[in-house]
């Protein structure tokens, strides 16, 4: 399974990482992939550290249970660094995408990863406030993920959001999120 990918999302409850993992799975699925998306359930309270996971493959995914060795890690809340082991189980050449106004080089030191790891940053919080009017940094992170890894195309993410969330959210919220996805795609920078 050459293109088999495991992804881990780090965030805090209410930041939308479970939804982000879901949108990613749906977008990959509509691109013809096999997918899994699941959150880690624990004591659920606002602000608590939470994790969500994806598996994406061009072949049937038989593996169930925890994602132990993700090659892509998205850190939606940078205050988790130091509290939660964000590099746990990752291979040397893992990709880290971090929501922060800081540069990728600074963050590389911050999470202490070696040179073969790829580190990307974007100010997803700021993008979400500008585009949606609220601090929900999940959708810019999806745009950044598409740009940084190509595991899914940004068009697939946009189309999924348009199609599957139109009933749930108002047109303004949808429009804001689509803008946020595009901004995330454009603003992500590698260190």
């Amino acid at each position: 399974m050459a293109d088999y990918t495991e992804i881990r999302w780090h965030g805090r409850a209410q930041q939308g990482i479970v939804t982000a993992a879901k949108v990613l799975a749906e977008a990959a699925l509509s691109s013809g992939k096999y997918v899994q998306a699941f959150p880690e359930f624990g004591p659920e309270r606002m602000g608590a550290p939470v994790r969500a996971f994806n598996r994406i493959s061009s072949e049937v995914i038989r593996l169930h249970g925890q994602v132990a060795n993700p090659s892509i890690v998205l850190i939606v809340d940078p205050t988790l660094i130091g509290t939660v082991d964000v590099t746990e189980g990752t291979p040397d050449n893992a990709v880290f995408i971090i929501n922060t106004p800081k540069t990728a080089d600074e963050m590389r030191k911050n999470i202490s990863v070696n040179k073969s790891a790829k580190v990307f940053t974007l100010d997803a919080g700021k993008i979400s406030v500008e585009c949606i009017g609220r601090h929900i940094p999940n959708t810019p992170m999806l745009g950044a993920l598409a740009k940084a890894t190509g595991v899914v195309s940004v068009d697939a993410v946009i189309n999924d959001f348009k199609e599957n969330y139109a009933k749930k959210y108002s047109p303004q919220v949808i429009e804001g999120n689509l803008k946020a996805i595009k901004q995330g795609f454009e603003q992500v920078r590698e260190g």
Binding site: K22, A25, V35
Partner: peptide, 12 residues
């Protein structure tokens, strides 16, 4: 079916 592992996991 398995709680969370299957019940809360999105699959094809």
């Amino acid at each position: 079916l398995d709680g969370f592992i299957t019940s809360h996991s999105i699959e094809n």
